[in-house]
Amino acid sequence: MDRVFGMAGLLGLWLLGEGISAHFGLPVPGSVIGLMLLFVILCLKGGIPTGVASASDSLLKYLAMLFVPAGVGIMVYGEVLLDVWLPTSVAVVLATLLTLGISATVMAVSIRLSRSREL
């Protein structure tokens, strides 16, 4: 029963995120807003409820299936992607470098904060 409540909670946060995104006309997908809400709730709670852990473990088993639509999209729109391969490649490389830079900065700040709290 924990898994059902956990899944209901995850779906509820997703729907809440979709509602916030639609209501305020945000350029951020509702699923991302829902994940941010989940992150905030988990931080405030200080742990992962068993229902959410159980539901997310069940979803992670099928994570590979979520890549099937992307693969089909590449197959269907292969010719279009060939026409725009350069801007797409540049965007992917820049986004990856930006993500790595931000992640490294956040990690460095986190380490610095945790060391200063220990002293």
Rank of each mutant, 00 (worst) to 15 (best):
I48Y: 03
M65L: 13
G17N: 02
T105P: 00
S56Q: 01
G51L: 00
S21V: 09
L98C: 11
G25S: 13
G9V: 01
M65F: 14
G25M: 09
V32W: 13
T99F: 11
L66D: 00
L113E: 10
L15D: 01
A70L: 15
P69E: 01
R3N: 02
L60I: 08
H23T: 14
L63V: 10
G101K: 06
I74N: 05
L13N: 08
L66P: 01
A91W: 09
G78P: 00
S56M: 12
L86F: 11
H23P: 00
T105A: 14
A95Y: 12
T96V: 11
P87Q: 08
L63R: 14
L86T: 06
G6C: 02
L15W: 13
M107F: 12
V109A: 14
I41D: 10
T96S: 15
P69L: 04
P69N: 00
E79H: 05
G71P: 02
V72A: 09
P27W: 04
Y77K: 12
L44V: 09
S114T: 15
A104L: 08
L26T: 09
L11Q: 05
S54V: 02
I20R: 06
F39Q: 03
T88F: 08
M36E: 07
V72Y: 07
A53V: 07
G12F: 03
V109Q: 12
V84I: 12
L26D: 01
V28K: 07
A104T: 04
A108W: 06
K61N: 00
P29N: 05
V84Q: 08
G71V: 08
G30A: 05
F5I: 05
G73Q: 03
P49N: 03
P87R: 05
P87E: 09
Y77H: 10
G78L: 13
V76W: 05
S54D: 08
T96P: 02
G12E: 00
L113S: 11
T105M: 13
